[in-house]
Design a binder for these strands. Structure first.
Lengths: 189, 189
DNA sequence: GGCACTAGTCTAGAGCCCCTAGGTAAAGAA
DNA sequence: TTCTTTACCTAGGGGCTCTAGACTAGTGCC
């Protein structure tokens, strides 16, 4: 009965890796325990329940995405920043599909506050500084950008663009052109 | 042992109602059987497995959304059509959250072909006729619209817009203005 | 009406998952 | 060394998925 050296952090990271390998919906407490050569009941010493594990993976993913986005944004402005930010987001989803799926988990208000969601919003606002939008247009633009990025990535991952021959990379690039154009010519209220 | 008169269609419809009431993820074969006063094993005479049930609910939702969108589109063109289409989509998600969640299920290629997804794409292209976009811009615009609508609705439902006081209705309306403006001034390749 | 056949439901049970209660061994403190 | 705490274990209940095989309700035919 040697100790496995489990911690919440190790469990969360392993769960995130597992999510990328087999899909977030297949990450179970039982399967995670198996991976550590331990009984499932043992994990409940470290986790309140299975939902906590999922939430922790979601928080990890949100934080990682924010880190990547921040790196991508460093030293850039205007369209350059917009493109780098969007690509960081899309690349993360491609490389870490399970984590990305986890990040879509519905978090309760308090948990959402504690997450990196605020950093995402702040970075988006930073990008918009280059486009000089006043409130409430700025908030609307933040929401539009989030919606489009998230929608594009999740439809692409779900195979929603497969029926047309045009590559999704090409459309992605043109979508960013279009959003840049839109932000430069935001329609008056 | 009176017969319950189960059919795949009745099961699918009941599952869809159940999804709207308790959430798509809580629709199980066992719970559905309970609702019909029948043992869970009995449903496997009508369904291959639980996944088939989920897929059928997804197909139902996609078809219903396409119907609503088609109604909304009738007799409209230009921005009018764009707004009506987008609202039909968003309203459906509001009234039928469980069905909407089901519609996001990943379908395999064949199932997706048999779904109403093609009708959605055709309607979007019909809207774009008013904006006179040539290929490949048209395909890109279809993808952009889908992405934005889907992204907006799912972020809104997930509570992603709660942290800012601005109402989501106001942003939605301005988002449609912005998309209309963008389509009228689509940037040259 | 009786018989054969099919369709629809049931019971029993295996396997996996979530989670709790209570036991026990390992690691560290005194 | 002994004591305490920490970390893991066994046992078990309850839910979900799904299969095998039994049984019955209904249908068609004589």
């Amino acid at each position: 009965m040697a100790r496995a050296g489990l911690t919440v952090e190790r469990l969360t990271l392993a769960a995130a890796e597992m999510a990328d390998e087999v899909g977030f919906e297949n990450v179970t407490v039982t399967a995670l325990a198996r991976r550590f050569g331990v009984k499932d009941a043992s994990l409940y010493f470290h986790l309140r329940n299975a939902q906590e594990l999922r939430v922790r993976v979601a928080m990890l993913a949100l934080a990682e995405m924010a880190d990547r986005a921040a790196d991508a944004l460093a030293g850039r402005a205007g369209k350059d920043a917009l493109v780098a930010f969007a690509n960081a987001y899309r690349d993360y989803a491609t490389r870490h599909p399970g984590r990305y799926a986890a990040a879509q988990l519905q978090l309760d208000r308090e948990t959402a506050e504690a997450s990196a969601a605020r950093r995402h919003a702040e970075m988006t606002r930073a990008i918009l500084r280059g486009y000089r939008l006043a409130e409430p247009d700025q908030t609307d633009a933040v929401r539009l950008l989030h919606s489009t990025f998230h929608g594009y990535v999740s439809l692409e991952r779900a195979g929603g663009f497969r029926h047309t021959p045009r590559t999704t990379d090409a459309t992605w690039s043109r979508t960013l052109d279009a959003l840049d154009a839109l932000l430069r010519n935001w329609p008056p209220g």
